[in-house]
Design a protein around this nucleic acid. Structure first.
Length: 589
RNA sequence: GGUCGCGUAGCUCAGUUGGAUAGAGCAUCUGCCUUCUAAGCAGACGGUCAGAGGUUCGAAUCCUCUCGCGAUCACCA
């Protein structure tokens, strides 16, 4: 039982004794910094049941608690707030329990299994900043869910088929001259992306030609020879045409190799890849079953629909009149497939908020089909990453390329580190690894610290900060702590039970105490931002402690040991929470 | 037009069961390296919480309306 629960019971008892009233609920909050105290009882809500004034009530309860609970040192009352000061012993006991707990804050057992999908790239172009946000968010949420006590499988769905890849393939055939990643020296995804752009250019030329011939825009777009050729190529692919399938495999493989390189640099990974070419036919039989159950209905033209007007939504098509699948069909089938493959009891889809409606409908359909795990589906809907000029568009070249961005961040980290020149004794390889950790830390923290739902405005002209509320600031604090631990060449392992805490030390312990509930809250809300902000608060407290209190310089042995222990624990929690964000921490910087 | 989301300091963001005088970082300004790493610390400046009503002891937070921004509403993905 934590303090709040214990106090809650005691407050109820106090009120019963003093006023003969059974309280419905007891409300606590952390004491604000400007007042003395560690936890505060809000007495306003009690006034509904107890006829007295808030100050008298606070005094009465305060007195009762001090007498009955040895962990309470004293109290003060301000208006309807009873500020309670807990004894040092209480904090020392808590710290003693966690100081050697390597798993502090994280669950050690798995209650249930779920899957997190956090990437769904098209194989016709390289990854950009939008994908980075998607990847980082999903990876982090997967880690947070695992820490909160779930078995987690990470997956991506690769959109490897469709008209988009055919466009790249066609352009490669026409303009490629047999170019490969090897001959061109280009990363495979970049090479294929270039041909996508070339296709678009040729397509646009044909459209303007047709417009000049007097066609309408719609006609021109539909009749341009190159788009018809691409559609023909898609038909051939679906028919299993050998030559087309061969080219498709080759170019997709180039892209996969390129993606893998980017994922590795980003530090994200997957337990299982699903490919759309394998899943795009799934779901049709489920639609048939749903028809029989009456969940869906067939229109005269043969198309199949679901009526969601009762839920305030529209009618939605689930099968075309020619019997082919739409995206929804596929997603229904894939979801069922995944549950079978992994025996999971739920899924998190990390997909941009432009698809809010799609997932609302998907989840509803799966519920109506009677899958009990449909209750545990969650769309982790994140805001778009926009540029000052507006939306990123691959075809118009207004994208922030993922690889380029990672490289720029690393370069900035290199520049700053070299200016500061604190890395004597590091080899070139060690330095490069460090620049990568810092650069990536800055990028990841920058993206993860904001609420997933909010859109991010990324200005390429203004570089990402390395000072203040940033990844490097937190990494720097970790490195400082490690420096202290390297210098603490004495045994500081024994628990310290009798000690007078100063204000900074107490603040730090209180912040450490919040870690487990922060992890749980972040899991419930699918929000790495909560972990990021928690860590920032912890680090700010530590830096204040570090700068205002001497750690190794003190004469008092107990004090010295305790401060080293405290520093070590703070370092461990920084490392632990940054692992949840997918950010590494350095020994020096 | 319907639906959903967002609107907090010049800029980027916290503020999650409704609680005390709305908090950080960046930018600007002032101090602090002869002590454990100054990517730091201590401080100053900066607010009509988009606006108007309502709910109540109390609202940035809950409800209604208005304004602004974005997304979505296809036999597209």
């Amino acid at each position: 039982m934590n303090v709040q629960e214990t106090l809650s019971v005691q407050v109820k008892k106090a009120v019963k004794n003093l006023y003969q009233v059974e309280l419905e609920s007891v409300e606590f909050q952390p004491t604000r910094k400007d007042f003395e105290g560690d936890i505060t009882l809000v007495t306003f809500p009690m006034l509904r049941q107890i006829k007295t004034n808030p100050v008298q009530l606070g005094e009465a309860i305060g007195q009762y608690l001090v007498e009955k609970n040895p962990e309470i040192q004293k109290y003060n009352v301000v208006q309807g707030f009873l500020n309670i000061v807990l004894a040092d012993q209480y904090f020392l006991n808590f710290f003693g329990r966690i100081k050697d707990d390597a798993n502090f804050g994280k669950a050690s057992e798995y209650a249930e299994a779920i899957m997190v999908e956090y990437s769904s790239p098209n194989t016709n172009k390289p990854l950009h900043l939008g994908h980075i946000r998607n990847n980082l968010l999903g990876y982090s949420v997967a880690e947070i869910l695992r820490a909160s006590g779930k078995k987690v499988y990470k997956t991506q769905i690769i959109n490897d088929r469709g008209i988009h890849i055919c466009k790249s393939m066609l352009a490669w055939q026409r303009f490629g001259n047999g170019e490969t990643p090897e001959t061109s020296g280009l990363k495979g995804d970049k090479l294929v992306g270039n041909f996508y752009v070339k296709f678009d250019k040729a397509y646009k030329e044909e459209i303007s030609y047709l417009l000049a011939q007097g066609k309408t825009e719609d006609e021109a777009k539909a009749e341009a020879p190159i788009i018809k050729d691409a559609q023909e190529m898609l038909r051939k692919w679906e028919a299993g045409d050998k030559e087309v399938v061969e080219l498709w495999k080759t170019m997709n493989q180039w892209v996969y190799n390129g993606f893998e390189e980017t994922y590795q640099k980003l530090g994200v990974d997957f337990d299982k890849n699903y490919y759309e070419s394998d899943t795009y036919l799934l779901g049709k039989n489920v639609v048939a079953e749903g028809l029989e159950k009456g969940v869906f209905y067939r229109k005269d033209d043969g198309s199949v629909w679901i009526d969601l007007t009762d839920e305030g939504l529209d009618e939605k098509i689930v099968l075309r009149s020619d019997g082919t699948a739409v995206y929804m069909t596929q997603d229904i089938g894939t979801a069922i497939q995944r549950v079978q493959d992994f025996h999971i009891n739920g899924m998190v889809y990390t997909v941009g908020n432009e698809q809010d409606y799609h997932f609302k409908v998907l989840f509803l359909i799966l519920k109506k089909l009677g899958y009990e795990w449909a209750e545990n589906l969650y769309h982790l809907s994140y805001g778009m990453v926009d540029l000052p000029s507006g939306k990123m568009k691959s075809r118009e070249g207004t994208v922030v390329d993922a690889d380029d961005l990672i490289e720029e961040m690393t370069a900035t980290a290199r520049k700053i580190s070299e200016e500061l020149g604190k890395l004597d004794g590091y080899s070139e390889a060690e330095k490069e690894e460090l620049y990568r950790i810092i650069g990536l830390g800055a990028l990841k923290y920058y993206i993860l610290k904001v609420d997933p739902r909010k859109r991010i405005l990324f200005n390429p002209e203004e570089s990402v900060d390395f000072q203040g509320n940033t990844g490097p600031f937190i990494q720097y604090t970790y490195a400082r702590i490690q420096s202290i631990l390297r210098k603490a060449d004495f045994d500081y392992s024994q628990p310290i039970l009798d000690y007078n805490l100063n204000d900074k030390e107490k603040q730090l312990i209180k912040q450490l105490q919040l870690y487990p509930e922060t992890v749980q809250l972040a899991a419930e809300n699918h929000s790495p931002a909560l972990v990021a902000n928690y860590t920032y608060e912890l680090v700010k407290e530590f830096n204040s402690f570090y700068q205002n209190v001497t750690i190794l310089g003190t004469e008092d042995e107990t004090e010295k040991k305790f401060r080293v222990q405290l520093s070590k624990s703070v370092g461990e929690v920084i490392k632990s929470s940054f692992e949840l964000l997918g950010i590494q921490v350095p020994e020096r910087m």
